[in-house]
């Protein structure tokens, strides 16, 4: 009997995925983004950064020591409660989501408030950033984002000296976002950062992934990405950015204050009240990895929380 090669009966991408040959593909994809600098082969040794200076994408990919999560998974496994609670159902419901025209109002305690349209947003120099995204539900993906540091936008609007926090808001449009008809959370979705967190170079506003515009299910046309915090902090489809004096109450803090704190820094040592955060399921690649403090960005961000009790400020 002729032996059937699995690649004959399974679509190529799934075959690669299942056999974990995605390793090769990920390296290839990264190499093409990064102009020929392939990441180190995956290893189990703890990651260490060579420099404490802001990292370029090349160093980031190397530091992650992981393969990119296939686009198919990034685009079909989403938590976006504005559409549905089903992670695999978001893509279809968000298909016709209108992302143009779009406006982001930037104001509050700033000297020069402004309203950005899509052209204004794209006028910021766009860069590639490969980050691991760690969901509070204990799974993670490695995503090549395209975007720009939030600090560049904040510098333009010039926060006043009273500004201590940044408050973000998602679009509220139950016509387009059917999930907003259910009172799962207080809509619109609200998130917040301390000003120094918002100004950190790792914090970006993303407009794309895998070299293309963001798919609607991933938060088009513009979203926040804060890689050292749980995914729910990285608010999607932003329409409002406000500089404020008081710590904003995020939607998740309001929904369950003893489970979701303002900081929500990735921390394997601080469990969710109902489940462990010690490990995470690796989407795409399969298997599990041990969760790292600050999602592996300890060297870059630990100083922001010097002297703070991370268990208390979860």
């Amino acid at each position: 009997m002729r032996k059937i090669d699995p690649s004959e009966i399974t679509p190529e991408h799934l075959y690669l995925n299942r056999r974990q040959l995605i390793a090769g593909m990920g390296a290839l994809a990264a190499a093409s983004f990064l102009g020929g600098c392939a990441p180190e082969p995956a290893g189990s040794a703890p990651t260490a950064t060579a420099t404490s200076a802001p990292l370029g994408p090349t160093e980031m990919a190397e530091q992650l020591e992981s393969e990119l999560t296939p686009l198919e998974d990034v685009a079909n496994y989403n938590n976006f409660y504005e559409f549905t609670l089903s992670k695999t159902g978001v893509a279809e419901l968000a298909e016709d989501f209108k992302t143009s025209p779009w406006e982001v109002e930037v104001g509050g305690l700033v000297s020069t408030p402004r309203t950005l349209n899509l052209d204004d947003i794209m006028a910021f120099e766009q860069e590639e950033r490969i980050y691991r995204m760690r969901c509070v539900e204990a799974w993670s993906m490695v995503i090549p984002w395209r975007g720009f540091p939030l600090s560049k936008l904040l510098d333009e609007v010039e926060p006043t000296s009273e500004a201590q926090f940044v408050r973000f808001e998602t679009l509220y449009d139950p016509q387009q976002m059917p999930g907003q008809n259910r009172a799962v959370l207080n809509w619109p979705y609200v998130e917040g950062l301390r000003l120094d967190e918002a100004m950190h170079d790792l914090t970006i506003l993303a407009t794309g992934l895998y070299g293309k515009d963001l798919p609607p299910q991933n938060g088009a046309p513009i979203r926040l990405v804060v890689p050292w915090k749980y995914g729910f902090k990285s608010i999607k489809s932003i329409v409002k950015i406000e500089l404020v004096a008081e710590m904003p109450t995020s939607s998740w803090m309001a929904a369950s204050p003893n489970e979701y704190g303002f900081y929500a820094n990735v921390n394997p040592n601080v469990r969710h009240p109902r489940w462990s955060q010690a490990t995470e399921r690796v989407i795409g690649e399969g298997g599990r990895r041990e969760t790292e403090l600050f999602n592996g960005y300890e060297e870059e961000v630990a100083h922001l929380y010097a002297g703070m009790d991370l268990e208390e400020n979860f």
Binding site: R271, R274, S276, A278, T279, R281, G287, R288, E290
Partner: peptide, 20 residues
């Protein structure tokens, strides 16, 4: 399937999780 029978990780996870 999920933990690859890695006993250490399984024990940590169970001990830390009310759900488990």
């Amino acid at each position: 399937l999920d933990f690859g029978f890695r006993v250490g990780l399984i024990v940590t996870t169970i001990v830390e999780s009310r759900r488990e």
